[in-house]
C-alpha cells in the first residue's frame, strides 16, 4: 500500500492513487461499473426488482469460483451464471418476489445451494480465505487488464441497449397495463431488462462483491428516487452518486487499508439515511 498518506493536496493524492497498475485497473473498472450500476439501478428500484438483483448476485458466487476453477476469469464465470439465472427466471415467466410463501421458500433453497456450490468450487481449487472474501465482499486488488476490457465491453453493450429501450422501459415500468394497451412489448422488455440486470450484477460484483451488491445497484438509485421524481434527473443523480461512492470508497480503501466493500456500503448507507431524514423533516415542516 502507499508509502505516504493522503494530504489536502488533491493533485498529489490523485498521483499517489494512480501510481500502481492494480489501482488504475480498479478505478477504471469501478468507474465503468458505477456508470452502469447507476443507470441499471434506477430501473431496478423503479421496477421494484431489488430482490432479483440480490438473487442474481448470489447465484454469481459459484460462477466466479467456477471461473477460477477452470482457469478462466471470475468475471466470465459471473457473466455466464448471472445471465443463465436471468434466462431461467424469464423462462419461468414469473416475477421474482419475496412476498409469496412458496416462491420465497423455493428461492431460499436455491440460494443456499448456490452459495454452498460456490464454497465447494473454492475448496476444490484450494482457494484461500482471502479469495473467498474477495468474491463475497469485493476487493481493490486483482482486477486484471482483460477484466477491465471485458467490463468495458459489457458496460458499453448494456448501456447502449438501455439507451435504445429507455423510453418504453420507463413507460412499462411505471404503468405496465397502460403500456401494454398502447402496444409496448412489456414481457419482452422485462426479459431484456432482466438480462441487462444480470450483466450489470456480474460486473458490479467485481468491486463490491456478491453480498454487498445493494450498495451500488440499489442504494444510489433509491436515494435519487427520494430526491427527484423526474426520470432524466433521477438517472443522472443515481449515476453521480454511484460514481462518488465508488471513487471515494476505492480511494479510502487504498489509503486506510480498510475493506472496500465496507467503505462503499457505509457511504451509500449514510447518504441514504441522510436523505430519508431530510425528507422526513421537510415533510413534518410542511405539515405544521
Amino acid at each position: 500500500m502507499p508509502d505516504q498518506g493522503p494530504s489536502w493536496d488533491v493533485v498529489a493524492d490523485v498521483q499517489l492513487l494512480l501510481q500502481f497498475h492494480f489501482m488504475q485497473n480498479a478505478l477504471l473498472a469501478g468507474t465503468l461499473v458505477a456508470l452502469l450500476a447507476g443507470v441499471a439501478g434506477y430501473f431496478v428500484v423503479l421496477r421494484g426488482q431489488s430482490f432479483a438483483a440480490h438473487m442474481l448476485s448470489q447465484v454469481g458466487f459459484p460462477g466466479a469460483a467456477a471461473g477460477v476453477l477452470i482457469h478462466a476469469s471470475p468475471v466470465l464465470g459471473l457473466i455466464v451464471f448471472c445471465a443463465g439465472a436471468a434466462l431461467g427466471i424469464g423462462a419461468l415467466g414469473r416475477e421474482v418476489d419475496a412476498g409469496h410463501r412458496r416462491e420465497s421458500a423455493a428461492i431460499g433453497s436455491i440460494l443456499a445451494f448456490s452459495l454452498g456450490l460456490g464454497f465447494l468450487f473454492v475448496r476444490l481449487y484450494g482457494g484461500s480465505a482471502q479469495g473467498i472474501y474477495a468474491f463475497l465482499f469485493g476487493s481493490i486488488l486483482g482486477i486484471t487488464d482483460s477484466d477491465v476490457e471485458l467490463t468495458l465491453a459489457v458496460a458499453l453493450t448494456t448501456m447502449a441497449s438501455l439507451a435504445a429501450v429507455g423510453r418504453p422501459l420507463v413507460f412499462a415500468s411505471v404503468d405496465p397495463d397502460v403500456a401494454q394497451a398502447r402496444g409496448v412489448p412489456v414481457r419482452l422488455l422485462s426479459l431484456a431488462f432482466l438480462l441487462v440486470l444480470a450483466l450489470s450484477v456480474a460486473i458490479t460484483v467485481q468491486i463490491v462483491g456478491t453480498l454487498l451488491i445493494f450498495a451500488l445497484l440499489v442504494a444510489p438509485a433509491a436515494s435519487a428516487l427520494q430526491l427527484t421524481a423526474r426520470v432524466g434527473r433521477g438517472i443522472a443523480l443515481s449515476v453521480a452518486l454511484a460514481l462518488a461512492f465508488t471513487w471515494l470508497g476505492l480511494s479510502l480503501a487504498y489509503f486506510t487499508n480498510l475493506p472496500v466493500g465496507f467503505l462503499i456500503t457505509s457511504l451509500a448507507f449514510a447518504f441514504y439515511v441522510a436523505v430519508r431524514i431530510v425528507k422526513a423533516r421537510s415533510a413534518m415542516v410542511a405539515w405544521s
Partner: peptide, 16 residues
C-alpha cells in the same frame, strides 16, 4: 421483506 429497498440497504450495511 426481501423486496424492501430500505431493509435491503440496512442489512447490506450490516454485512459491510
Amino acid at each position: 421483506r426481501g423486496r424492501d429497498v430500505a431493509i435491503g440497504t440496512v442489512f447490506a450495511w450490516v454485512l459491510g
